[in-house]
Design a binder for these strands. Structure first.
Length: 226
DNA sequence: GCGACAG
DNA sequence: ATCTTGTCGC
């Protein structure tokens, strides 16, 4: 797929935050009116130990069977430091590169990190959704805000609140396993994001697209030829 | 002022 | 994110 990214790139933390503020209005927190979702792409970036080398992995799954349809890896180097709240500027470049290698145009994108559950309501999943135009979901493994634990059963959830507003859900994807933090990225609402997250997590804590992308990225980095 | 802070 | 040993379970 082709991804159109603004040519500008932040050279400072302040510039990065300003870009997030400017792009935030482009987020659609409700149904984008797209067609049926038949394929789902999972995104993840893995890092090497001693260097800045990284591998961005994208795995596309059939939405019904969860069978792998396509998978790609883009190698690169980190161009932005890890700063909480500016995480997207670290992972977006290699992820876009990987997305552009795809032959398949996914109908939904699932990101490893927050969507609108972000201090400026523009986490990685929102950024990916806006630059691709695709519906996207953010699934974080940890929260940026304090929260109350949901029930112990798979499917149980509680609100993720920031400044008095519900920005996401704390969602239990497996019985008795610590929950994940779901938020809207772009083009769908929170209820749909949670429903998809559950459907995409039939067996493990993490949704299959992300879990497989994580595996692919690590394996690629450890490969001799990488 | 200090620490905490998606991955 | 990554660093780590063994261990329990399918």
């Amino acid at each position: 797929m082709r991804v159109t990214v603004p040519h500008e790139w932040p050279h400072s933390v302040d510039e990065a935050a300003a870009i997030q503020e400017r792009l935030r209005p482009l987020v659609r927190a409700a149904d984008l009116g797209t067609g049926p979702i038949r394929t789902v792409a999972g995104l993840d970036v893995s890092y090497a130990e001693g260097s800045d080398r990284l591998a961005a992995a994208v795995v596309v799954l059939d939405a019904d069977t969860l069978a792998v349809v396509e998978q790609v890896v883009a190698f690169g180097e980190a161009v932005f430091p890890y700063v909480p709240g500016l995480f997207a500027f670290r992972e977006l470049p290699p992820l876009v590169e990987a997305l552009e290698m795809l032959t398949t145009l996914p109908d939904l994108v699932v990101c490893d990190g927050q969507g609108v559950a972000h201090p400026r309501r523009f986490g990685l999943a929102c950024h990916v959704g806006v630059v691709t135009g695709l519906p996207s979901i953010g699934i974080g493994k940890t929260a940026m805000n304090p929260f109350e634990a949901p029930g112990q059963e798979r499917g149980a959830s509680s609100p993720l609140v920031d400044n008095g507003e519900e920005v996401g859900r704390v969602l239990r994807t497996q019985d008795g396993i610590r929950p994940v933090f779901v938020s809207v990225g772009h083009g769908l609402d929170l209820a749909e994001a949670c429903a998809w997250t559950l459907r995409l997590s039939p067996r493990y804590r993490l949704a299959e697209p992300i879990r497989l992308a994580d595996h692919l990225g690590r394996q690629a980095l450890r490969a001799p030829t990488s």
